[in-house]
Design a protein around this nucleic acid. Structure first.
Lengths: 156, 156
DNA sequence: GCAATCCGGACCAAATGGGTCCTATTTCAG
DNA sequence: CTGAAATAGGACCCATTTGGTCCGGATTGC
């Protein structure tokens, strides 16, 4: 379905909440879990991953917690996706390059996915987490997303 | 990894081979399997799906086979992806809409993925299968679709 | 009528991802 | 100095998805 993992979604949510910490302050994983409604172990996992990618910074010990390393406006969506889901590449064929495909010599699309990957990367690189979180008002509920229900084709 | 299924990859390969059929002629699933080096049942499955989406046309009986319903230049990659992988939506949240997320009222990114989905759809819609199968000389050239880097702003 | 082919499923095995848990290590409060 | 709170880093299990195969039925040409 060309989807990205739920973890990435969670990451965006957590990062958004994290922004609300006061200047220089940190928020704890349990605290963020409570604030977002997500499971504590899950939030912890996400934060650890983000920390590893350098998007957040963890401080140990009592009074410890996490904080952003930069404002969300300077945090491109691509970095979060890359941190959680790994590199953006639509087919294994692309980055593994030659040697793996046994139909290699007969494959007409060999290496041809690159422009597609580039196109996606480019499209995503212009979007920051702030753009995702920063909506004026997510409103209480209407049905914003439901409306754009697309013509589902019944594929699989 | 933000990947699309192998089946989609296969679909592109098969479609490309299918283009080599002589005008008005058809190619059989077994024939295409042999030509592409893919498994016969798999090729068959892909063709059935593509047929259902209207990208190819099947003709039954002896001397039957498949043929393209339009030239590859007029077949956007998005249609193939949609046909095989289903609608392009990065999170389940988006198309399932409300009612499923228990943290709904606390979720700051609610509905905010739409622009991302649109960005990807837009980036992909400019790429045709012909671009992927592309002539021998697509090599270093400025890929067509990637140029349409959209002026995403939405938020703010 | 027979053979070749598409059509529409059901079906199974493997891989992937979501989620939990456990054990260090670090740090602050008393 | 001791204990509590928090991150760090894995190992681990289970549900879902995906890749791939197979079978019976319908259709068409010889």
């Amino acid at each position: 379905m060309l989807r990205l993992s739920k973890l990435t979604d969670y990451a965006v949510v957590v990062l958004t909440r994290l922004e609300e910490a006061e200047e220089g302050g940190v928020l704890t994983a349990p605290g963020l879990a409570a604030a977002t409604g997500l499971g504590e172990p899950t939030v912890s996992k996400v934060l650890k991953t983000l920390s590893h990618a350098g998007l957040v910074e963890g401080r140990r010990g009592a009074l410890g917690g996490y904080r952003l390393t930069r404002p969300l406006t300077e945090m491109p969506l691509t970095e979060v996706i890359t941190a959680i889901d790994g590199p953006i590449a639509l087919t294994a064929c692309v980055d593994n390059a030659a040697g793996f495909c046994d139909a290699e010599d007969r494959c007409p699309v060999r290496g041809r996915w690159d422009p597609v990957n580039d196109a996606i990367r480019r499209a995503l690189s212009g979007i920051s987490i702030a753009d995702l979180a920063g909506a004026p008002a997510i409103v209480a509920h209407p049905e914003p997303a439901a409306e754009r229900h697309m013509p589902y084709v019944a594929a699989e």
